[in-house]
Design a binder for these strands. Structure first.
Length: 558
RNA sequence: UGCCCCAUGGUGUAACGGUAGCACACCGGUUUUUGGUGCCGUUUGUCAAGGUUCGAAUCCUUGUGGGGCAACCA
């Protein structure tokens, strides 16, 4: 069977370029974050795209920090961004690069533009510049400073550099077309004065390049062949091209794609910061956060995140991706890799009345039916057990119910089949104890009893149980699109008050005392979990990554 | 009321003038010592109207709808 490979539109461009021997068939991409915040799902898409594209065509991907605004950028973010990229499973080519590495070269390009009569120093106030810019429907007006001589511009720009002028008093602008239908071509600002220490260059510079000045030239300097960015930069492309053409340097191609919006998630830096600052979440790495660090802490495998974005693909239309796509990939990876263990989240006591009082058996239970190499572990079994409260019903209504109820049989996972005889109700009317008998010859692996049981329950032996805490997470918002959901409503109006539920008294099997922090677990029949960063040997804390698919949950609700 | 981009099942994405496909979700069946997993199957779509063509999701025109553009941010 011949299967046609499906190419996305960027791959089509690249393959055409390779076919035409453009750039000698070279493919070189880059991921250009600004170090002023933490990476989130949206960045993950860009990372996956850039690295996967280069990998597919035998190319390279640079990591370049776009650090041209010293007032907002910090080294702290550089470190977290590097960590997140590596965690995602990617390694940039060579050293980490910075736009600030090119400040000297960028300054030279600016001089070249001035000498060619393509840039001038403007003394206008920010308000005046905005005024002269016009609006999308009305053309702008030419600055009174646009007519300065090349010599004067050279001199003034030099003085801007050496710090002769105050912040905001002068800018360097490109001389293009104040009547352009593209606002970005109306003599855009190239350099501004900012006497602010830079996280890498310190106080060396008094002027800093704007995005358009820095980005394309940085791409060019690095020999980037395909400069992939999001749709909102589309209107910048003519300027990107113009700047490069003026100085006749290597010309990368900018290609825009639609950012991926995921339901129940937001990616606005400002709004994310609000959640952190106002304590809606515990921090940038709160497991409910759409940040890469949050998802990591939640237990989402990097592989799942990668598969998700690669699977979603890339196009140029607006989109809202249903979060179930992500959940699918999380479960797909975890089903293959997670160690199956038993933990009872909402315990009720069960006594096996015909089991010897002080007997303990050690049962061998397989770690992962999907992975033979995962081996097995020993789990202690005794007369008294915890089972899940929801696994017992006094009077089941549904005919298809096959968990525990008086007179019913059920298999205890990896152990015996038991028969429910009776139960005790406390003064509040709550079931406090369930009494069962067991079939001694029904032990898992050597069952000769002939007894049938439709359901299988997970359990924990009370004398051996380890008390722990579980944190159950739900989506952060109550609606899929909390931004612009409803006229006059803020995204915080849709904050999900129940997005975190703490279960302080769960009981887990003793093997979990020895588990490492990055081991993905499946609490059988309950969901996928991972140890939280706050967890200690004496106080185990488990984060629920996601639940298992719950067919019964759907049926029983009907 | 200017310019630019976009429009394919519920969601995401293919088909590049020649049978509208894949994944997720949903629904049904089957297997199962996890009501998990696996396996099988059903339903659902080309924004609208014209035009070109033997033939249009694809090309053209107009309309409709959505998004972007007026930071000394990136």
């Amino acid at each position: 069977m011949e299967e046609k490979e499906v190419l996305n539109f960027i791959e089509q461009i690249i393959e055409e370029d390779i076919h035409n021997k453009k750039n000698d068939g070279r493919v070189h991409t880059r991921f250009p974050p600004e170090p002023n915040g933490y990476l989130h799902v949206g960045h993950a898409k860009s990372i996956c795209l850039n690295f996967a594209l280069a990998a597919k065509y035998g190319g390279k991907t640079n990591l370049r920090f776009d650090d041209t605004n010293p007032s907002t950028e910090e080294t702290e973010y550089v470190e977290s961004i590097k960590k997140d990229i590596q965690w995602l499973g990617y390694q940039w080519d060579g050293e980490v690069l910075y736009a600030s590495d090119y400040f000297g070269q960028l300054y030279e390009y600016a001089i070249q533009l001035i000498k060619a009569g393509k840039a001038y120093v403007d003394d206008s106030t920010p308000e005046a510049i905005a005024e002269m810019k016009g609006t999308p429907t009305t053309p702008g007006t030419i600055s009174p400073y646009a007519a300065r001589s090349i010599e004067e511009n050279l001199d003034l720009f030099e003085q801007m550099k050496t710090g002769e002028f105050e912040d905001g008093s002068k800018v360097l602008r490109a001389r293009i077309d104040m009547a352009s239908s593209n606002m970005h071509m109306r003599d855009p600002i190239l350099y501004r004065i900012k006497k602010v220490p830079h996280h890498r260059t310190g106080s060396t510079w008094n002027i800093y390049p704007m995005y358009d000045m820095a980005h394309g030239y940085s791409d060019s300097i690095e020999g980037i062949t395909h400069s992939v960015c999001t749709l909102e930069f589309e209107v910048h492309r003519p300027l990107y091209n113009w700047l490069i053409e003026q100085v006749e340097v290597f010309h990368p191609q900018q290609i825009e794609f639609a950012r991926g919006n995921v339901s129940y998630m937001i990616t606005s830096k400002r709004k994310l910061l609000k959640l952190v600052k106002d304590n809606y979440v515990s921090g940038w790495d709160d497991p409910r956060m759409p940040t890469i660090s949050g998802m990591r802490r939640r237990g989402i495998p990097a592989e799942a995140l990668r598969n998700f974005w690669i699977g979603i693909g890339v196009a140029r239309r607006e989109n809202l991706i249903d979060i179930s796509h992500l959940e699918f990939h999380v479960r797909e990876v975890l089903n293959r890799t997670a160690i199956r263990v038993m933990g009872v989240l909402n315990p009720v006591k069960l006594v096996i009345t015909n089991y010897p009082d002080d007997k303990t058996e050690t049962l061998e239970i397989i770690n992962n039916p999907e992975d033979k190499d995962a081996g097995s572990r020993k789990v202690p079994f005794s007369k008294t057990l915890y089972i899940e409260r929801e696994d017992f019903k006094k009077e089941p209504q549904n005919k298809k119910y096959f968990r525990l109820a008086p007179g019913k049989n059920v298999r205890l996972k990896g152990a015996y089949i038991i028969h429910c005889e009776d139960f005790i109700v406390n003064e509040d009317g709550i079931v406090s104890e369930i009494h069962c008998t067991y079939y001694p010859d029904s032990r898992s692996g050597s069952d000769t009893s002939g007894v049938k049981a439709k359901g299988t329950l997970h359990w924990v032996s009370i004398p051996h149980a380890v008390k722990a805490e579980a944190r159950i997470y739900d989506r952060l918002f109550t609606v899929p699109e909390p931004i612009n959901h409803e006229e006059g409503k803020d995204f915080l109006d849709f904050y999900n008050e129940n997005s975190l539920k703490i279960l302080p008294n769960i009981y887990v099997e003793p093997s979990l005392k020895d588990i490492s922090k990055d081991t993905h677990l499946q609490f059988m029949r309950k969901g996928y979990f991972i140890l939280d960063e706050d967890s200690t040997f004496d106080n185990l804390i488990f984060n629920q990554t996601t639940t298992l698919r719950d067919t019964w949950g759907k049926i029983s609700k009907r």
